[in-house]
Structures are given as C-alpha cells and as structure tokens.
Design a binder for these strands. Sequence first.
DNA 1: CCGCTCATGTAACTGGTTACATGATTTA
DNA 2: TAAATCATGTAACCAGTTACATGAGCGG
Lengths: 186, 186
Amino acid sequence: MAAPKRTLSELESVVLGLIWAEGPCTAYAVRRIVQESLSTQWSGSAGAVYPAVARLEGRGLISSREQSTGQRKSQALAISAAGKRVLSCWLGPPVDPTAFGIPADPLRIRIRFLELLPVDAQLRFINEAITAIEASLQQIRADVRARSKQGSPFATAMARGAMHASRARLRTLTELRSELEGQPSK
Amino acid sequence: MAAPKRTLSELESVVLGLIWAEGPCTAYAVRRIVQESLSTQWSGSAGAVYPAVARLEGRGLISSREQSTGQRKSQALAISAAGKRVLSCWLGPPVDPTAFGIPADPLRIRIRFLELLPVDAQLRFINEAITAIEASLQQIRADVRARSKQGSPFATAMARGAMHASRARLRTLTELRSELEGQPSK
DNA sequence: CCGCTCATGTAACTGGTTACATGATTTA
DNA sequence: TAAATCATGTAACCAGTTACATGAGCGG
C-alpha cells in the first residue's frame, strides 16, 4: 500500500500519450514507436516500456482488453477518463517549468570542453559533427513531410521542432568554426 | 575487484571537464557550477557530484590534495594525465554518435500531445511557453555576454548554442500558433 | 553569537539501462 | 522449415534523485 507517486515520469507520460494518440494498441506497438523515434531520449527497451505500462494500468490510467488480430492474441491498451485528466495535467497549462529550461544537449556540453583538444582535432570534431547533423537533417525532413501529410499540426510541429533544433546546432558549429578559422593561431 | 566500467557517464565526464577547466578546485565548486548552470540537465545535488568525484578519483583520473584557503581546509581536485586522455577520448573525434542524435526536449514532447487539450488551452500553453522562453532568453543572452567577455570561444559557443536552441523553440511555437490561428475551427 | 556559506558526505529510493528468456505467428 | 516479427516479460545493475546530516569558518 505504498503511497502512489503523484506525478508521472516523463516516459510514463509519453507512453500514456501514445496510447491516447494511437487509439487502442498493444504495449509492443508503443514500444516500437519509442524505439524508432528519431530522438535518442529512450531506448524503448522492454525493461522500460512494459513496467511503465504496468504502472499506468495499476493507477487506472489505462485499461487493457484481450484482443486477437487474426490468430494472434494481445492486450489492447486504451486510455481511461482518469488517464486523460492526468495527461492534460501533465501537459498544462500551467506548463511544468522544467519543460522551459534549456534542454540537455550532449554536443553542446562537449563544445564547452573542446579547448582540451589540439586545434586540428577541434576542427575535425566540428566538421564531423556538421556532417553527421546534416545527414540526420535529411531524416528529419522526411519525418516532417510524412507527418504533415498525415495531417496533425501537432505531430508536424514536433517534427519541425526537431528540425529547427538541428539547424540551431548547425549554426552553432559553423559559427564556432569560422571564429576558429578567423584566428588560426592564438 | 569488480571490472571497472570502461566509459564515463555524462555527468562524470562533465565533472572531469570542469575540474580540468577550473584548474584545481574543490568538489563543492564543481557542484556549484553544475547547480547554477542554466541547463536543467542535472540537479547538482551532493548525492550525484560527490560520488562522481569519488569514482573519478578511484580510477586515477583526478587527484586530490589538501589545501587551505585562509583557515578553511578543503580538497583541491586536479585532473591527471590519464584523466586528460579519457576526457579527450570522451570528446572525440570520433564523436559519440549519441551526441549527434536529436536531443531530448520535454517541451517538444508535450507539443506532440497538445491535441488532447481544448483549443483555448492549447493557445494558452503556447503563449505561456513563448513568454517563459523569451524570459529565459534574457538570461541566456547575459550568459553569452559574460562568457564572451571572459574570452574562451568554446564556452561562448556553448552559450550561443543554448541561445540558438531557445530561438529554435520559439520559432516552433510561433509557427504552430499561427497555423492554429490560421484555421480557427477545424 | 547567530546565521550564512563552504565543504563533504550518506541513505533510501526510483526509473531507467542491458541482457536474457520465452513462445506464438507470419513470411520468405 | 527457417528466419523474422509480434508479443510480453524478468533480473541485475547503475547513476541519478530527494532528503537528511554534520561541522567548520566567516561576516554582521
């Protein structure tokens, strides 16, 4: 009878949101979406998703019903009224202030310490990062196109958000590169 | 004699980097920097920083020496040669591919599910977020100024990276808002 | 001398991670 | 029929979190 935690973890919220968005679906389907997401935030491992689903069900935020697709049996998950309330509350307003904060960025953190490397390695770092991010921008653009075709302005906005974020990182890198090239030996 | 983990956690790397960058300093000083960082990535709690420092020292990546500032005693931490090697390796190149991935963004995730809210709440969400991010942009700009005065192009680039990222989020939000206002009832 | 900051920790918990495990069904 | 995918889990581990705890030195 441990006092149930009042707030959901970020992953729990996303799982709940996906169950809402994808209509009744299996935990496996949710897991696949998290796994295939372009964001590297979560692994989408079974060890994360299934326990999260179990916790949501334990709180009555989702319900599961046996179903069969053809010969195959599975649990169809659906969000409950309480689940919708909790999800709305997670969204806000008022929006959780941690959602406004500067989000974590492993690339930006590395830039902070780049001075440790010899100059040629610094430039290699920057060029490698630019190439990689440009490549991932291709995927992101495809994702934006796909989602905007599907219609939802919100899913599209999320994808465009990733695109803007990637461009911002490119800008940061190219700015730094030109500054470094501006004063080749200092 | 547990086999030591080969790689450092992101926090361990940052702590090591800060000990490198801030010259010999106390764990407390490192902790303050992490705490006061504009990024919300880590709490900078004692329960995170001190164990991380202990792990780094246990691996020989840093050394500690008793010092006294006035009457006050403390441990001055300094990075070792091995520590510099490990830090260089963490930086790359080759850069850890997870550093290229789309970084986590709790705001972007919420946008994905914003359709759940009634339209007026959607707009309140967006406006609230825009206001908050504009406010935080003031702080970020001040940070950019302060760091660029101090000289290091890398610390400055990091701060400018945060600025670009925030602007990207603003762009995402204003785009979404104007799209929603474009078709008021659909 | 009182309160703030410096300074360093520990303890309980939690929610992720990787890796392992199983079995049914579908597809090539 | 073999391999891939669907589907659901568990176990060990780990690095964070919050909260608690202590004590010294410094400034008013």
